[in-house]
Structure formats: C-alpha cells, structure tokens
Design a protein around this nucleic acid. Structure first.
Lengths: 357, 357
DNA sequence: ATGAAAGCGCTAACAA
DNA sequence: TTGTTAGCGCTTTCAT
C-alpha cells in the first residue's frame, strides 16, 4: 500500500534518546513515575528535533478513552451556535475536546449520520438537543456505554440519557407576561412558532401560566407565525383581534424569539404603530439582533455559561471523571440534586426600549 | 486497568459467523474481492445480532487515512457559522466528515490548540480562515503532510497552503458604490471595522476602486466603527461631514456587514432621517437580519454553495482523491485554472428597500 | 473464496 | 529508574 511519508513515532524518539519506548511514553505523558531529569531532557529534545506529534488515535485505541466529546445541534445560527461555542470552551476547561455537528435544520437522517460517526469514533460522551429523530431510533443508536446528556429536551425518557439541562422558558415567559401587564397592557398576545414544537410548547405553557396569575381580565391571543405566509398577515390578524376590544393601554406581545419579534416589530412600525406606546414587545434569547433595531428590544437573557457548566458537570459524572468535579461551585451540585433529571436554567428579563419605562 | 464493557469487535463477528477476521473485514467494507453470498449473509447477520459498531480509530490507525477534515472558524455566528454548515454538508457529499472548531473571537492561543488537536487526530486535511496566529506559527504547526486550504485569506504565503477561496469583496463593494451612485448619491461613505483587518481592507479597496470609476466628483468618507464607543457617535460624525457639502440627493452608505449597517440605519431612523430618501444604505453578507428591519436592507449576497464546493475541490486535489473529482462542474476546474492560488467568489448585490427604487 | 499474520502507534502491567 | 511485552481493533498482503 502507498503510505504517506512515515510519521515520527515514539520508536524514533526512543532510538534518538537512547531509551525505551515505555520511558518515552512516560516522559511525554508526564506520568507520575520517577524518572531522571537527564532522561526527560533527552526525550524532550528528541521530540523537539524530530518534530514529533502524538498520534491520538493510537493512544485512544490503547487506553480505551478518547477525551473527545460529540455534540449535535440543529444549526450553528443564533442560540445553538452561541451555546456550542460556550460548550467547546467549557469542555476544554475540563480536559475534553468537543466536536460539534449541525443537523442542517432538524433533519433526522443527518442527525443519525453524525451520531453514528461520533459513536464509531468512540467519543467518550454525547451532548445533544432534544433530537428530531425518534426516541426509539435514538435509544437503538446510542445504546449502552456512551453517556448522553441532553439540553432543551423536555419530557424525554429518563432511561437512556444522563439528564437534560433545560432553559426555563416556562418561568421566563411568565415573567415576560407579568412585565407586559405592569406596563399597562391589558391585551397580551403570544407569537408562537410551531415549527419548533417542543420549545414552543414550553413558551406557551409559561405564557398561559403568566396570564392565569393576573388580576384583571384580559384579551389574549396566540398566533402561530409558522402558519402565516408573511409577518404582515400576522400583524393583520393581531390588529383585527385587538380592534375587537375597547380596553385601553398598549398591546403586549411576547414573541417566540428575537428574530420573530424583531420582524413583527418592524411590520408594526411600517404601518405607523408606535413601539412602545401602541405596543410593548418582548423577545427571547437576547440575540445580538435585539440591540440593532429601533427601539431596542426587551428580551429574555440566556445564561450560557451556567447552562454549559451544568451540562459538563452532568457529563463528567456520567464519565466517572472525578478529577475536576471539585472545581464546580457547590451550588451547582445542590441545583442538580434539587432539579433531578431535568435541570432548569433560569432566564433573566432584560427590559429595553421596546417595553417603555 | 479498569476497561469499560468490552466492545464487540470483528473477532467476535468472525467467531459468530465461523469465518476469519479478514473475511469479516472484507464483507463489512464491501471490498471488491470475490466472496460467497452465504458468507456475506452470515457476517452481516452476526454484525446485526451482536450490535457491532466499527471502531474507526483502529481502522484509521491501520490504513493511515481518516476521512476526517478539520475546520477552524473565528466563531459560529453569522457568515462563519453558515459557511461551516455548508462545508459540513459538502464534505459529506464527498465522503468526508468535517469537525468544526470555533476560536472564540480571534484568539491565537485557542486556534493553536484546536489546530494541534486536529493534527494529533491525524485529520486528512485542514480548512481555515486567514488565521489570527502568525504565519510563522502556522507554518511551523501545520508543517508538511497535512494539506491546508484557506478561505478569506488574502495575501497569505503560497508555500504552505493549497490555495485560498476568497469572497470577492473588492468587486462586490465596487458594485455597491456604483449602485449608490445610480440612486443619485453624490456623497458616499464607508463604515469600516478595523477589528477585522484583512476583510475590512478588501472592502476599502473595493470602495475606493468604485469611487475612482465614477464621473462626477463626490464627497466621500471612511469611518471606522471599531473606534467609536457607540453607533450614535458614528452617525454624529457622518452627519457633520455631510453637512459640509451643499450637494443634493441622498447620502450613500456602505457598511462593513449587515449588523453594523442595520445598527447604523437604526440610529439614523432614531433621529428622524429617512431611509431611503435622506440616506441609501447597503450592507454585506445577506444575513437573515437584513430582512428584519424596516426598511429591508440591500446587501451583498454570498454564494455559500459555490465557495464550499471550490474549497472542497481544492482539498480533494491536495488529498490526491480522484474518486469524486469528476462530480464537479467543468467550469469549476476552469475557474481554478483562471484564478490560481487565490480563487475569487463573486458576490451578488441584492437591492432591497434601503436603497429605494 | 478464505485465512494467517504482520503491522499501525501507543499504553500499561509487570519485570528488572 | 527503566525496559519488555502484550494488547487496543482493524487493514492488507500474500498464501492457500
């Protein structure tokens, strides 16, 4: 077979340094065994001179552990890209390397393929959103042996994942509703997105919970933006509903995310409505876009670091990796104990111009 | 040593099917050697029943080839995330799997780390933007043997990369300037971003080229948004400059990207300026945000697929992988031959409301 | 059409 | 303090 230019191996280093390969291995891995300074120097020098580079495939194969983690996201855009970035950073902090793959939307086939490759690569653990592929397929594919930690997965079976680290959209949306109410809104709408079912459901639950806690009766409505051909038409319907009531004050709107909300707000402005004034609107995600518009958008902020740390904590526990466990704040442990299988990450409302003062 | 539950290997399959491991390997890899249907059936059945999953580390180690590619991006946001996604898809089309890592901004340390891990993993090839780390360091790190294909890297040495697939911001910006001129703008500004030096430079070159091709004299200016504490102040300075001239017509503005441009436009609207009317503005990237505002933003569209295909073509050539080469349109080959080391990807101007009609 | 056996580069138990 | 050696799971050459 045609091989590429032979790589430099520990055998070469051993020869160059005049020691055995075991010693080379020990030096290179800074293992906790006694060895003379002289040997260390010789080996390191040889490595430097020969331009040695460890072959992790061989190492992984041998020690049955890869220190590689795999992550699946539906896309690199918005929240998921940002979270993936944070996870890569966090994983590194704890000695792991994280590869991220995008499922290009929510394509189950692509998900399956990435999962399979990851498993074939013998990653130590998997991190994934509530997958698009069936839970049956997931169970079958992942099987035993490779721990799976979920994020933003609600109501997933507790038997094949270590747990789920979820953004608490329920409480977040409750607060958003409360905020709108306090700004004088007595007509409050939610702009949903049934295309992203699970996460939309959470928001709806929070929205309804929030409404049910208010004193005065309200005019409320839920609009599924996914079913509208354009945002203009959504606004049409919202305004039609609003005009039915004779209550005063601004109309409150909570949107599925900052994109949808910004888009809705633009449509509003385009037809001369005032925000705030005629409308108060709140988005979700604190995406950079929320700062771009005029007015700036009130939104729910996501504590990426917290979510990433807790996800990693769960993973390390599943991996039985006790080395770094003490580096987590004690409160994280407590939170884990309190929340159980589904860990909740609280969202913080950031009030900006779109909700007035 | 404490091993995890022993994996199912081809040895197990061989035993179960009553054949040798060589045969199992042949069957599983659908190699082009004669074998009886019966054997194939037996092996596949055994694999199915025992839940066999290939260990690619062992396979890669043995055949000295991984079919893995590594990619480095400065972040998962905006253009880079979108392009990374497209590259993953494209790589798969040609039988490769692509891992993407974010350098968290342009941190050279993180870049270095990711590169090193990728190299240790013996990926077949590397794909990277014009790195933040020094070219010296890059040369040293990558060394021989692993092909490197760059994207959006201008003026990089031709000796250690296979080539660079670059977005043609020069021509794109020329066209943008032309467009503004045709809309009646006789005062044309560029909003730069020196934080992203190389790509900003390309835009400036195009901007100046565009200006130099116009007939009438103009009032022009370049503002580096990176140096301003807020977009409000940038607008202040722009308006100050503009007020110096007594020329009529709208003011034309080309922004570094859609984010900066949207932000600028918002600031404009906030102080009562009309877009279009008082100002015509154009962004770059055709980011989803460009559709969110009011008015919608004219922008330069990026042909992700083309850029990804050409990047992959370059990579496959470097890998000496001739299997799929014929799947590329002949014009791609021609383009490669024409452009040489730095391949240019043309950008298309999308005229929307922000430049009027 | 199938199998035996020599690696691939590294780790780790054990011996010296 | 250092070395020997048996794997890790798979590919591939060369016999049979």
């Amino acid at each position: 077979m045609m091989r590429k230019k032979r790589q430099v191996t520990i055998v070469d280093l051993a020869a160059a340094a005049g020691v055995s390969i075991a010693t080379v291995s020990n030096v290179l891995n800074r293992r906790n065994v006694p060895m003379s300074q002289e040997t260390i120097r010789k080996v390191e020098q040889a490595a430097e001179e020969l331009g040695y580079r460890r072959n992790v495939m061989a190492a992984n194969l041998s020690r049955q552990k890869s220190y590689e983690l795999g992550m699946l996201v539906p896309s690199f855009g918005g929240y998921h890209g940002r979270f993936a970035e944070e996870m890569q950073r966090t994983a590194h902090t704890y000695g792991y390397h994280l590869s991220v793959f995008s499922a290009a939307g929510f394509d189950p086939e692509i998900e399956k393929r990435h999962l399979d490759v990851l498993l074939q690569r013998r990653v130590d653990g998997l991190i994934s959103h509530g997958l698009a592929m069936s839970q049956e397929a997931t169970r079958h594919l992942v099987g035993e042996g490779t721990p799976l930690v979920l994020f933003n997965a609600w109501g997933w079976p507790t038997d094949f994942a270590e747990g789920a680290v979820n953004l608490d959209f329920v409480v977040g949306c409750e607060e958003a509703v409360r905020c709108l109410y306090e700004r004088g809104c007595r007509r409050i709408m939610y702009l949903g997105n049934s295309a992203l079912y699970a996460t939309d459901q959470q928001r709806r639950i929070g929205f309804n919970n929030g409404l049910s806690k208010l004193e005065e009766p309200l005019l409320t409505g839920i609009f599924d933006t996914h079913l509208y051909p354009s945002m203009e038409q959504t606004v049409d319907d919202v305004e039609a509903l609003v005009s039915e009531s004779h209550v005063g004050g601004p109309v409150g709107v909570l949107g599925f995310d900052d994109f949808i909300t910004m888009s809705f707000m633009s449509a509003l402005l385009r037809r001369g409505r005032k925000v705030p004034g005629d409308y108060c609107v709140i988005g979700i995600n604190n995406d950079p876009v929320s700062l771009l518009g005029h007015p700036t958008l009130s939104t729910l902020d996501i504590p990426y670091t917290l979510q990433a740390e807790l996800t990693m904590l769960l993973m390390l526990k599943a991996l039985g990796d006790t080395t770094h466990l003490n580096r987590f704040p004690a409160e994280y442990e407590a939170k884990l104990a309190r929340d159980g299988y589904e860990v909740q990450i609280p969202l913080k409302l950031i009030a900006r111009a779109s909700t007035g003062t």
